[in-house]
Design a protein around this nucleic acid. Structure first.
Length: 221
DNA sequence: CGCCAGGGCCTCA
DNA sequence: TGAGGCCATGGC
């Protein structure tokens, strides 16, 4: 733990270095394979990660960690395994939509698709929106895209770096142009934001003890 | 008990 | 293109 530092002129890069120094590398995403990352990205939509974990355990136990195995499972059976993650009927459908694309293209082959093209393909799948697509691109395919999720919006808007209600692409663009980085750095940065968001920058924030409170506009109000 | 959690789709102006 | 309704479980 470093002593209280001040961040005289907040910018995306400075905040990153501060969080990294404070918390250390996170080594994300919490999964054992790229395919499991993709599953998790769909299941975590508007859902606590804890609940996603138990749904993934169910899939693992049922030996359903491949696109073909999932596609061969009846909808209601799959939905039942996904129950702990919530929205289980919707997610069963979305998971199969993703698996249809993976299986049709060939799992291995998808890793050779250029980022822009792959992103468009993912966004074309019903149930895969911008955040889920970018989770998959960054954490399963290791492409240099930054993920804008609820933690990211809340964090940077409280810091005063964005207003928070900008459109997804606006925020992503602003972020990626002001911090031109590698996939490894975007990976760490987003993971650090999520950790910080769970520990301190919750929807009901715990500003005392927050390493950024001296410069965060929200904590000082 | 109510609130919240690593969204996205559909509908209707 | 933007707001509102909807999907649903589990922890606190």
């Amino acid at each position: 733990m470093s002593p209280a530092q001040t961040l005289p002129c907040l910018d995306f890069g400075r905040v990153y270095r501060h969080l990294l120094e404070e918390y250390g590398p996170q080594g994300w995403w919490p999964a054992d394979s790229p395919f499991e990352v993709m599953i998790g990205a769909v299941l975590t939509q508007n859902t606590a990660w804890r609940n996603v974990e138990s749904a993934i355990r169910n899939l693992l136990q049922a030996d359903l960690l491949s696109a073909e195995a999932i596609l061969a499972t009846p909808d209601d059976t799959l939905a039942d395994l996904l129950r702990p993650s919530g929205y289980f009927n919707v997610k069963a459908r979305r998971l199969k939509n993703l698996c249809r694309y993976i299986s049709k293209t060939g799992y291995r082959e998808t890793f050779d698709i250029p980022t822009g093209e792959l992103r468009q393909a993912l966004l074309g799948i019903n149930g895969i929106g911008p955040e889920t697509a970018d989770d998959i691109l960054l954490y399963a395919y290791e492409r240099p895209v930054f993920v804008i999720d609820a933690y990211t919006r809340r964090f940077f808007s409280r810091l005063g770096l964005v207003s928070g209600n900008e459109g997804y692409e606006i925020l992503r663009n602003r972020f990626e142009t002001s911090l031109d980085a590698t996939a490894a750095i975007y990976n760490e940065y987003h993971a650090l934001i999520v950790w910080h968001g769970k520990e301190f920058c919750r929807s009901k924030p715990l500003c005392e003890g927050c390493t950024l409170r001296t410069t965060c506009g929200y904590a000082k109000k």
